[in-house]
Design a binder for these strands. Structure first.
Lengths: 330, 330
DNA sequence: AAATTTTTCGCAAACCTTTGCGGAAATGTT
DNA sequence: AACATTTCCGCAAAGGTTTGCGAAAAATTT
């Protein structure tokens, strides 16, 4: 294990001062072209890599973003992360990824870890049982930018990047209405999630306004298993003609229930979901869905972050529009 | 944006020296209980967080692991990452996640980023078109431990944690043989991947040894789309009674082909895959698969990493055994 | 040739923490 | 009371980098 390559090693080897070497490597105008060349050549040869800890300590600017999601094993978050990572690396940034497990206590630990590591900014999708959102303010006020995404806190004056939850739910509801599905079982996720609230409100409002007599039946499921069970139970006494699924998780549970119940899609039951897009395509027939793309959301979030870092610090709320993707399930 | 909380701020406030405060916070025996209490109380109150950059610079030990995968949007890697993150956080470590996009050039960039950030160790799943594995040796020799996982380089004397690729393929082959499937279409992944080679060799060897007359037909697909097309093309002239899928990616393509061809499973065609476990359960009937768990592999890899960091530096090759999970597709 | 400007580089402090060593104060021993 | 021991704490250096400032050397102008 050889000695680490530092500016000092290069400088002594060339009979220069450390500061000259440092400046030469950054193309500082004070340094002559000749020495710049010499320094850069040797640095290249010795495979010099600046010690980021020293750099950060000195300059107090970090090249790391924190990214906190409830869980990583989720197609939506995955694609979000994927998008952010792509762009971050292009900017010379690197990602510190943490999962809160949907536990606000762990989420706080994650935030601490981010602060401790002096990250340049945080991408945060809040845990479901999020506590007082005031905690976030402390970080923001201390100068640590947070871009909230997907499940965002109920705070004004902060940066949020969200799928168009209301729009998606409205599109879904209108699609169902236009298809004249009168007996709808609508399964939403965890009630504590801000997304659930937003989507449900818009969904029901659309029905009230455009089809007041349809009266969709609302259920909540916070897991695939739960969604499967709810669906099966519901069919014991009722015969809905449509099931709406708020998420991939729920869609999967519902699909398994249709297997159990031996239902033909769309003859026996039609189905519509809100999804990132991967899962609906796995089924036969492919499921119709309103797209909320994690990838696009990631790109938008990263854009917002870099804008913020470039001085546009006033809070923005960005909405990623939704589109309807046709399968053959309706 | 207030002043950052440093040891100095605490020390001046308490009329102590910086070193005393530092030691008090770490329970150094030289410090009296009384002052320890005072210091800790104030530190708590002021929400002191040690500057990890300064700590690292001074101690030269990092609390960050690098983790490089081809892509993050892959159920196997996801669950791997999830497992590693869980355990890493428990050890006070944090994860720097990078994706190489299966491009060895980007992979080198990622490695550089890791080195630059002075990570404590790297978890690396090599890109498909991996170049000379000697590059890795340079890092290892410089004292940066690398735990290779899943797609590992052809190097002796390095730490590898792999699914039991041969075993999984052997189990798969034997299962197919025992079910007396004589006309097998076996679709494998990218030929350049070490996994592909290993799985294919073991698969074919098992057939040769246990059923020399079966002669499975081997195809390669490096995408879902390709697998779908290959399957459909094959059915134009042949009528296999079984399809073996080396990966989730391929399984999905094959399933879509069965939709296109309107094949009943298992009556018209039986199917067996090697998988992480999530995807096979989405279909109806559920697909039989040989499990190679990313989650378990992650746990093993993390274990290996911490053992290594604790001094067990001799190279290990760890194999994660495979098990057969029954669905209803055979 | 002297004076001025420009080019090129080095000194030293700063970022925050850790830690070996030494010293003062308190306590214990003859 | 003189000494030895223990307890408690501070000094200062080190880790690698950046950067303001000053100074020597070179180039240019008088």
């Amino acid at each position: 294990m050889s000695q680490p390559i530092t500016l000092k090693r290069i400088s002594t080897q060339l009979n220069l001062s450390i500061s000259t070497v440092s400046r030469a490597l950054k193309n500082h105008p004070d340094i002559s072209e000749a020495t710049k060349r010499k320094v850069k050549e040797l640095a290249e040869l010795m495979e010099y890599e600046p010690n980021s800890y020293a750099v950060n300590l000195r300059t107090n600017v970090s090249k790391v973003f924190g990214l906190i999601v409830p869980v990583i094993t989720n197609l939506f978050y995955e694609s979000f992360i994927s998008a952010v990572e792509e762009d971050a690396r292009k900017l010379g940034f690197t990602l510190m990824i943490l999962q809160s497990g949907n536990d606000s206590m762990i989420e706080i630990d994650c935030l601490k870890l981010c602060k401790q590591n002096r990250v340049a900014g945080i991408f945060l999708c809040c845990a479901a049982n999020a506590t007082q959102p005031e905690i976030y303010l402390k970080y923001i006020e201390s100068g640590l930018p947070i871009i909230f995404f997907d499940n965002v806190p109920d705070l004004d004056s902060c940066n949020k990047v969200c799928p168009a939850d209301e729009e998606a739910a409205t599109i879904a509801a209108n699609t169902i209405i236009h298809n004249n599905k009168k007996h709808v079982l609508a399964i939403f996720g965890n009630r504590e999630l801000s997304i659930t609230g937003k989507r449900m409100a818009a969904f029901l409002k659309t029905f009230e306004e455009n089809a007041p007599k349809f009266n969709p039946v609302v259920k909540h499921a916070d897991s695939t298993l739960k969604a499967r069970q709810i669906t099966k139970d519901y069919f014991k006494s009722k015969q809905p003609d449509h099931i709406f699924c708020m998420s991939d998780e729920i869609l999967i549970g519902v699909m398994k229930a249709t297997y159990d119940l031996n239902l033909k899609i769309p003859q026996d039951i039609s189905i519509l979901a809100i999804s990132n897009g991967f899962i609906p395509g796995l089924f036969n027939p492919a499921i119709n869905y309103v797209e909320t793309s994690g990838y696009k959301l990631g790109k938008l979030s990263m854009k917002r972050m870099s804008d913020h870092l470039n001085g546009q610090t006033s809070p923005h709320v960005i909405i990623q529009p939704s589109i309807l993707v046709e399968g053959s399930s309706m």
